[in-house]
Simulated scan of single mutants.
Amino acid sequence: MVDLTAHLNSFSFEAGLTEEEKEFIHLRSRAAGLTFCGCAHAVFLCKLVQSLRCIIRGQPANRASLASKEDRDLCVGILGMGHVGKQLLRSLLEKSGIKPSHMKISSRRPESTVEFIHTGVECFFNNSRLAAWADILFLCCLPSHLPKVCAELHSHLSKHCLVYSFCSAVPVTRLAQLLGHDFILKPKYEYVTSDAADVWLSCTHINTALRDPLLMEASCPVSMRGGISLDLNWVCAVLYSLLNICTSAGLGSSAALSLINSVLKGKESHTVDLNTHNFISASYASTLLPDMPCPWISLTDAQIKETPLQCFLSSDKYLQQCISAAYKSLLQSPPK
């Protein structure tokens, strides 16, 4: 069906706005861009973690040392079904490859979950239960609800549950205090109005947008465009989270780095060669034998302090290209 109003300026969104109101039009692209980037980066994380866990689980030498929660498909929980929670769930269902039976939602508004019941995703209102079950827990609640939510989660989170916060107004250090937990990821986006920001206005439907190569390019974590930027410490924290997963599985440092390098290798000829000196201090790395696990890394510290990985990533253009290639490859590849 042809849109008869497509080229009629009098029917455009801007036509009914006053000059004063037009000054805020950039907020449309800002909201669309931040939502898209947040969902795309969350999917990227889940696909990395899922890939790594599958490789670990598939190696016979590792099976005996795996805990019961590690020897299963990735389980993802979403706490909160407002606008962000819904967009995130749509993105995960479309792109992550995670089975709907391995996703659960906790929402205090059951009417907000009705559209997802047919997908096979379990919906309930029990934050403690969700925390005890999930391997990755996405916090999509309002900042004003966070103290109460964290009190409900506090004693139910396992050390190895990766908490991912979309609560922009609450810094990661405060969240760590509220949860008594240090395995937390929180992206820190910055937005600057620019002509290039119009690229985000095509993000009307998240699932369609996630198939757009231009948006994949613009949202790439190490080379973002469209007026939105992301602190490189987030990328480093993602890599540290993969290292922690290997540590919790009892893998030696040599095997852990080998698996992480293989997960980051895209379809193209980009070969990643990260080593222990890139992740931890040179003095500690020099004492670490290949069969000894790497130390557990606090993701809170990794996001607020200068780390060896942050120093290396910020200066190594080849590694940035490798991560960019892995991002596009994972998001553009069909879910398995």
Rank of each mutant, 00 (worst) to 15 (best):
H277S: 00
V199L: 12
Y191D: 04
Y189N: 01
I280V: 10
T271G: 09
S262T: 14
S194P: 09
I245C: 12
Y191H: 13
V192Q: 12
S241M: 08
I184N: 03
C236T: 09
I280M: 10
G226W: 02
A218G: 06
T276Y: 09
K188G: 04
R211N: 14
T276E: 15
S254Y: 03
L251W: 00
A255H: 00
C236L: 06
H205L: 11
L239P: 04
T247M: 05
L257Y: 01
E190M: 04
V192K: 13
V235C: 11
A197E: 12
T276F: 04
T271S: 14
C203Q: 01
K188N: 11
L251K: 03
A197P: 05
L242R: 03
N261S: 01
S241R: 06
S262I: 14
R225M: 10
T193H: 09
C203A: 13
V263D: 02
S254A: 06
E268S: 13
G252H: 08
G227D: 04
V192C: 10
V272M: 12
E268Y: 11
T271P: 09
P221N: 15
L185F: 01
A255V: 04
F279S: 02
F279D: 05
A282T: 07
L242K: 05
T193F: 08
C220S: 15
W234L: 13
V272K: 04
L215K: 01
I228C: 12
L264V: 01
K186R: 12
S269T: 13
I260N: 01
K186M: 08
I245N: 03
H270N: 10
S194D: 08
V238L: 15
E217P: 08
Y191E: 03
L214W: 00
N244Y: 02
K267N: 14
V199D: 02
Y240C: 08
F279I: 05
S253T: 10
N278A: 05
A255E: 08
L264H: 07
I184D: 03
D198R: 15
I260T: 01
D198S: 14
D273K: 15
S248Y: 14
I206K: 01
S229M: 04
A209N: 02
S253A: 09
A255C: 03
H270G: 02
T208D: 10
D212G: 06
P213S: 07
L230T: 15
S219L: 12
L232R: 04
R211I: 03
E217G: 10
A255L: 02
R225D: 11
L257D: 01
N275A: 02
C203F: 00
H270Y: 09
D273S: 15
R225P: 02
G266A: 13
V235M: 09
G227H: 01
S194F: 07
H270R: 03
V238M: 13
I245A: 00
D273H: 15
D195C: 10
A255M: 00
L274F: 07
A256I: 06
E268K: 11
V272C: 11
A282G: 00
Y191R: 08
T204A: 07
D212I: 01
K267H: 14
I228T: 11
W200F: 11
C246I: 06
Y284K: 04
D273L: 09
A218S: 11
L232W: 15
P187M: 05
I228K: 06
L214M: 07
V263S: 05
V192D: 08
A249D: 10
P221A: 15
M224R: 14
T193V: 11
A237T: 10
K188A: 05
N275G: 03
S283E: 05
L201Q: 11
D195I: 13
